[in-house]
Write a protein that binds this DNA or RNA. Sequence first.
DNA 1: CGTTCACATTACGTGAACGTCATCTACGTG
DNA 2: CACGTAGATGACGTTCACGTAATGTGAACG
Lengths: 133, 133
Amino acid sequence: MTEDLMTIREMCETYDVTPRTLRFYEAKELLFPIREGQKRLFTKSDRARLKLILRGKRFGFSLEEIRQLLDLYHVGDQQLTQISRTYEIACERLEDMEARREELTQAIDDLKEQLRWGEKVIASMKQDKKAAE
Amino acid sequence: MTEDLMTIREMCETYDVTPRTLRFYEAKELLFPIREGQKRLFTKSDRARLKLILRGKRFGFSLEEIRQLLDLYHVGDQQLTQISRTYEIACERLEDMEARREELTQAIDDLKEQLRWGEKVIASMKQDKKAAE
DNA sequence: CGTTCACATTACGTGAACGTCATCTACGTG
DNA sequence: CACGTAGATGACGTTCACGTAATGTGAACG
């Protein structure tokens, strides 16, 4: 069944994207499906990458930023200096993400506060309505 | 000094955006600066909104989505049903954000894992290098 | 009074991220 | 073999979020 290779259609259904999107990501070198004849076949690696792409998008990263992030996960047989550089970038990214989570937590707290206020407003309005009857 | 009103230039410097951006946000009804003659003057409320806009952007919300979120903070003298509806939407948004934070936490953990792996690779490569000397 | 700012409006331009359409190919099926 | 189906390849179109002139205006300054 899951022969480790998926057609473009299967990918689309699994991850809820269009063929156009997958071809676009390939053109941008975010995915590297292998070819059988002229058809694309997506590997396990492509699927892992796609998940990261979609996740990145949800957090407002551009495809170019995502591409760089993906490189952090690929780490082929490069030079030590290259890997070290990649490692540094990854550390910075990690800090970014942690800062982001802080901010998100802040935003959540703010909204919660706002909701408590909203509850009070609603409650008092219900009171007024009753009193008016 | 901070007379509660800021010119467009002051806003730009404070929040690191261009005049174009602020006018654009006004056109999109995200900000509502008052007018003195034909000049715009941004209020405390506009500044609070702008902060939320910029924050929303960092999390990948579209301006339209942000506009809806901003409405949650404005809550004028509406009907009870309106406020209740707004309240419900806010609750849903809150759940979205909490889910997002979960996902972000997952992403952070993934990247940390990857970094540990990177450290090992670097260490072993340094060993190889030494051995080759 | 002319000029320089600071800000305004109007309008066309741009890059990112796809959507859409036309056309082509390869493959299995009745 | 005709035909439908799945996928491929351009190429142009679209939306969003502004950028970038071009031009106008009102207050201030030498």
